[in-house]
Design a protein around this nucleic acid. Structure first.
Lengths: 310, 310
DNA sequence: TGGTCTTTTTTAATCGATAAAAAACAGTTT
DNA sequence: AAACTGTTTTTTATCGATTAAAAAAGACCA
């Protein structure tokens, strides 16, 4: 049976919309709600029906009004994320946090049981995840985890450097009136703000980092580069989440490097841009490599393990 | 039920092995056969059992001999290709040959019926095929075909040029004693041989092309580049198969470009290598772009179609 | 030790069911 | 007629169970 995470998330969001309107106000039309919540009208109607049942809205047809400030319980957050996202998170956790060592054979059935989903879900995830270069399929013999190793980090950054330099050059050559410049200025402001509060907000950097690099790329869109950035984003997202060593310091350094990089772009000097870009990537690469090594050291040497055997 | 294409192919291959041995000879051990046929011992035993039933081999245990020259019918070729490969071929055909236009919505159920496979097979293929940048998933709303367009060709070749130049440089810098040089020489010989018989054998170029570029890449392996070459190989494989315009001429040109490129590499002059490499890629890009345009022109303008509606 | 016979695991593929969500269609109201 | 809502049809997502094929592991033997 299909999960109703879409409905649940839409319901939670709808509570916010209703609360923002206030008692007595009339609700926007179903199609407007549909656009606002990012779901189909069918789902909007289901949400509306539930709200009516809870006494939060009243009326029917085109005359619906807010009856009461919502005080019904929201759906727990875990129920609002789609199955595929959960599988992804659990897998990344298994890979980056637990002792997943190179050569480990991935057993679909075992993972399915462990994650509490059907094998089809696992298969689908593995098929999509294949392109990230961390697992490999051997026909008729399942999947092998290739390892989150220094080699992986090196290969990743070799490509990343090629792509980023190419995009940075194009970006720096954008015409003066281009909207990119104002977006970059806004990005700069965000960086400065984050730096000022880095002690408290350093967790927010992962997201800013991803948005920044995607902005650079958007100067000359290329679907293959975009798709490659999905890998970077995913790896860094989970890596930032779990590698706690020197976390604040690492992020502060990266923010400063970004600022240098941004200023170089704003200065539009190709060679300075290249320097700043290379410097940042080199430092990011070091961080990632170190973390792949740490992971390997911390674990006792063992034979070829099996997924989920620990 | 799982298809037994592996068994059928192994059986056909085994007939060759047995025929090569001749009547009266004793068979190699099961593990040797397993390695020779590229399947597990379990499957070898099944093949052996079938051969015994057909009176082709006799004996048991470690004493098995060829009884008769095989004259049993082979399994038809269509039954020896796995389902996934069939889906791929049919989909590529639909995309490149039929009227698949940008924006077409892909309907899983319809494709499944059309191809005669279960929806799960289609889903799995689409998930894997996603990374090729030709289709896109919209959550809860299926897949959209983005189109085999000039933009696709341009983006593809932008990346290809970056990767190929990088690999060619590394290759040219390989030490004198490296095995790459002899492999390249062998490759050169193959090219010369193909050129001599180009009128008859121009179909063989597609495969040679793929092997040549992969050899260049192998000088400095990078999993992301390898994976990108899967895209190139797939596109070109089917493209060569179906775009018949000027086929012989196109291939002859490409072979000559390859030879120039190979000689440049053998000469180890970085700037000449770069020139030859760029020239070849530019010409390959033109061919692909032209073919994406032709496709579009040949079709009558229509609204947003649906997969399989024609 | 290198082989074969036997058993256990795991994958590949299908089928059917069901609820969710989207999309299309058909009316209504202003 | 444009903007809605009510209703119906399609399509997707997910599960679970099933089956045969293949692979892998284990037991045994010359």
């Amino acid at each position: 049976m299909k999960s109703d995470t879409v409905f649940k998330r839409a319901f939670n969001d709808a509570l916010d919309v209703v609360a923002a309107l206030g008692v007595g106000e009339s609700l926007p039309s179903e199609s407007v709600m549909s656009a606002r919540l990012g779901v189909s009208r069918t789902t909007v109607r289901k949400v509306l029906a539930r709200l009516a049942a809870g006494g939060i809205v009243a009326g029917s047809g085109r005359h619906k009004v807010v009856r009461a400030v919502p005080d019904v319980p929201r759906f727990p957050k875990a129920e609002t994320v789609p199955m595929a996202a959960q599988v992804e998170a659990r897998f990344m956790e298994w890979m980056l946090r637990d002792d997943a060592r190179p050569g480990t054979v991935i057993n679909e059935l075992e993972l399915a049981r462990q994650f509490g989903v059907a094998t089809t879900g696992i298969r689908e995830f593995l098929n999509r995840f294949q392109r990230f270069g961390l697992i490999e399929k051997r026909p008729n013999a399942g999947w092998v985890f290739k390892g989150f190793t220094p080699a992986f980090a090196l290969e990743l950054f070799e490509i990343r450097e090629m792509f980023e330099l190419r995009s940075a050059r194009t970006f720096a050559a954008a015409p003066g009136g281009s909207p990119f410049w104002s977006q970059l200025e806004a990005m700069r402001t965000e960086h400065v703000a984050l730096l000022a509060e880095v002690d408290r907000r350093y967790h927010d950097f992962s997201d800013l980092d991803s948005r920044f690099h995607r902005l650079i790329n958007s100067a000359a869109p290329n679907r293959f580069i975009d798709s490659f950035y999905d890998i970077i984003t995913l790896i860094f997202h989970y890596h930032y989440q779990w590698n706690k060593r020197d976390e604040r310091q690492r992020n502060e350094t990266a923010i400063r490097e970004h600022l240098t990089y941004i200023d170089a772009l704003l200065g539009r000097n190709a060679s300075i841009v290249e320097l700043a870009c290379r410097a940042h990537l080199a430092s990011a690469r070091e961080t990632l490599i170190r973390s792949t090594q740490e992971g390997a050291e911390g674990r006792p040497p063992r034979g070829r393990g099996r997924a989920g055997s620990a």
